[in-house]
Design a protein around this nucleic acid. Structure first.
Lengths: 249, 249
DNA sequence: GAGTGGTCTAGACCACTCC
DNA sequence: GAGTGGTCTAGACCACTCT
């Protein structure tokens, strides 16, 4: 049966479905033909039909719901302007940098604050000797009740000891406003961005469908003199965020 | 045979393999047990063994080579500093912004330059009336012979007509240096970054293994007065790039 | 040539939703 | 209950690498 000059059957079926979706024949949220439809219409076995649908699922184009079918996925992007959220006028005035994105719908869950020995990677960035302590602040950010971001922030213990930064609620303006109170206002930030597939339980925690990558951001806050103040590791739902950066020539 | 309180067999096998890789039992580049090994060791059918290996492949943890086996993937990141590459001192001095990343190993392939009617999306960003013309410059960037980035740049036709920008070779410093020559030096850039799975032939063109997301960047160059000069759409191998952005508070 | 993964078929039972 | 996708088995032939 195979005629191996063309793409395999399951790819041809996937291509046809993808083209139909791109033509608008199936709108976001709508159901596309299921396994049984493909078996009948293309005369293939069930596994081949399943393979075709898996291609679209792994491309992040469709969502598969057991007992229901395969549906065209719908996106709504959350814009995230790094420059606006990190400008002093945002956190200096008592707004959280998170609220800068969410238009006043800030929400965090499972805030967890703890003093720990600095992980090697973090110690290296912060310039802390091996075995030095940091405060770790972990949180899950929600958008419309949905978890969309995991965030873990590390600050040198000797810098923040006794400050509200060691409490779950840091008060208006968040960590950066408190660093200002402590006489160490952040002057510059660096964000390092990677895309990868979710690992371990990230897909479950962020409720990511198959075929959705995550964006992994490591942000370092620097004082005017170049001293690193904070490292923040974030894992975002890669399909939900549009990261915006402004750069001067 | 199914005992559906635990994870399915293929997931348990995948979890065991992943754990072994994380423990270092299989080093990057090394081969992990193949289909026949899993069939024998776990007493499952071939499809189930394949399903297990597919999980790791789609997580981007392994690479599958036909006729050879499944291998732990190895990464080497290409740092890409947006601020450095876009600073006037880079392109103003005749270096390509691409070379800013590659430490003097610039290379592009399949440069394609053409005047076209502006796609609606591009016209909107550039502030061009419907039906207006742009020059489109498409290229494939290589790193060590491997394609790692697709780039398509759009410039208003009335701005660049007659300039080297309409030629495949723009000369030293590239498009931005030529815009400077034309009296329209870029003053600011905005990059919008998304992560997604490759679609259509992107995986094939970039030679991406399964489970590798792409980073999709839309960069707009603005003149001092805020006029948009250029839109550049880029698709990068998400596993190979580390995007770096510097932000002032 | 032996061994590997790629594609494909034809069946089975199960878990879930309600098209 | 009918229909959906999830898991699983047991075969087959093909394309590719050389583990």
């Amino acid at each position: 049966m195979p005629k191996r000059t063309e793409p395999p059957k399951y790819r041809e079926i996937a291509n046809a479905l993808r083209a139909a979706i791109e033509r608008g024949e199936y709108q976001p949220g709508q159901r596309i033909p299921g396994e049984n439809d493909l078996i009948r219409d293309h005369g293939v076995s069930r596994n081949t039909a399943r393979d075709a649908l898996a291609v679209l699922r792994h491309e992040g184009i469709t969502d598969t719901r057991r007992g229901a079918g395969n549906f065209v996925r719908q996106f709504q992007l959350i814009p995230r302007s790094a420059n606006r959220r990190l400008s002093r006028s945002t956190w200096g005035e008592g707004r959280s940098i998170w609220s800068a994105d969410m238009q006043g719908r800030p929400s965090a869950e499972d805030v967890d604050v703890e003093e720990i020995v600095a992980p090697e990677r973090i110690a290296g960035i912060l310039g802390i000797p091996a075995g030095g302590h940091v405060w770790r602040r972990s949180r899950t950010h929600l958008s419309e009740g949905r978890p969309v971001q995991l965030s873990t922030s590390y600050l040198p213990a000797e810098l923040v000891v006794g400050s509200p930064i060691t409490q779950p609620d840091t008060g208006p303006g968040g960590v950066y406003a408190r660093l200002l109170d402590l006489g160490h206002p952040p002057a510059r930030f660096r964000e390092e961005v990677r895309a990868r597939m979710p690992i371990g339980d990230e897909a479950k925690v962020l409720k990511l469908a198959a075929g959705v990558p995550v964006v992994h951001i490591v942000r370092t806050a620097f004082e005017e003199d170049g001293r690193p103040l904070e490292v923040n590791e974030m894992v975002l739902d890669g399909n939900s965020y549009l990261l915006q950066y402004d750069i001067d020539a």
